[in-house]
Simulated scan of single mutants.
Amino acid sequence: MKYITSFAAAVLILASCNSAKRAQRTPPPVPADSSVKVETASTDDTGNKKDTGALESISIVLGKLNHIDYTTFSGRAGVTYKAKGDTKNFDIKLQIHKDSLIWASVIGPLGIEVARGVITQDSVRIINKLNKQYISSSYVYLQEQLGLPLDLGTLQDLLVGNPVFIDKTNSSYTKQDDTLQVTSRTRFFSNLLSAMLPDYLPAVSKLEDVDAGRNRSAELTYGSYEKVNNAQFPKARTIHVKYKTDIEIQLDYKSYTFNEALNTPFSVPKGYKTKK
């Protein structure tokens, strides 16, 4: 598998992880501002656990989930890509302008750039420097690769480390000791998100396609949090997708900055063949 394939697949899978995952259960519909029982456990004077119930709206709980507000993001991550028994390791540079674009550069052996891509609201463009090929397409290109609904916003959230695919109008939650579990159902899948308390840091997100016939699932993990911008940034991610094949992507950020000027050059060299 060439690096451009790994790059394209990495970007596609990162997007697809927002679109199909296996959850442990399907949550029932819950109105956005309804109150639900918060399940907690504490100890009494004898050391035995006792229940302490409280009421808190789901919207308030979801508002406490760790979420990074930003204008721009820049980072470099080591990537391990596993699929069909093959493993590739490379670095990827990312530049993100919120709600506008994602710019990515794949760095191969000896620090040489082997691919570059730009994703906007309505276009996908990739330069394959190994094969001297230029790919220009709409989001249909991404959807055809995995057959999943995609959008720029959720892909950006996933790359930055924000929780994805939580529907406030159809969610519920429980708290137990130091763990929060949010169950949410959207048009395409159900989601079971586990977060670490007291900071409400996403730890594992599991999604299941609501259409069992599609047999699609995935799992996101977040870890190695560092304080940034009044929130916490998860430097380590694992994206494991099972659909037509089994793909696992590990992201380990080596450096990152927020809200600084971006440099996103993109031009197609002469002589490159165009593929649409």
Rank of each mutant, 00 (worst) to 15 (best):
Y139N: 03
E208I: 02
T183N: 08
L148E: 01
Q133W: 13
N131S: 13
F189M: 13
Q181K: 07
E144I: 06
P149K: 03
Q121A: 05
I166Q: 05
N128K: 00
N131P: 09
A203R: 14
L159F: 08
P149C: 02
S136K: 14
D209V: 02
S205F: 07
L192P: 01
D209K: 04
D199M: 12
D178M: 11
P163E: 13
G153W: 03
Q143T: 10
D157Y: 01
N131V: 14
T186C: 08
Q145F: 12
G147M: 02
D177M: 05
P163I: 10
Q176I: 05
V140F: 12
P202Q: 08
L159W: 05
S194N: 13
S136F: 12
V204P: 09
S205W: 06
T120G: 08
N191Q: 09
S190C: 00
D199Q: 15
T169Y: 12
L180N: 02
V160N: 06
N162V: 03
S172A: 04
G147V: 00
L193V: 09
T186V: 14
I135L: 12
L158Y: 04
V124W: 03
L201Y: 10
L180K: 03
S194E: 06
D178A: 15
T183A: 05
Q145C: 12
L159H: 08
D122I: 06
L180F: 01
F188M: 06
P202H: 13
S205E: 13
Y139C: 06
S184Y: 02
L142A: 04
Q145H: 04
D167P: 04
L150K: 03
F165L: 14
D199I: 09
G153M: 04
L197E: 15
L193S: 05
L152E: 06
Y141C: 03
V140Q: 12
L152Q: 01
D157I: 02
R187F: 05
I135N: 11
L201K: 14
L192K: 04
L192W: 06
K206P: 09
I166Y: 02
V140E: 15
T183D: 12
K132V: 04
L155D: 05
N128Q: 06
L159I: 13
S123H: 10
V140A: 15
D209F: 03
V124T: 10
V140R: 03
G161C: 09
V210W: 05
I127K: 09
F189S: 01
T179Y: 05
R125L: 00
S184C: 02
T183E: 08
S137M: 00
D178K: 14
I135P: 03
D199L: 10
R125S: 11
F189P: 02
T169E: 05
Q143G: 00
R187V: 09
L193Y: 08
Q133K: 14
P198T: 10
T179K: 10
Q121K: 15
Q156R: 06
L201A: 14
V204Y: 11
S184T: 07
T169M: 04
S136V: 15
G161A: 07
K129N: 13
Y139K: 15
L130D: 07
Q176M: 03
D209Y: 05
D178I: 11
K168I: 12
N131M: 13
P149V: 06
R187E: 09
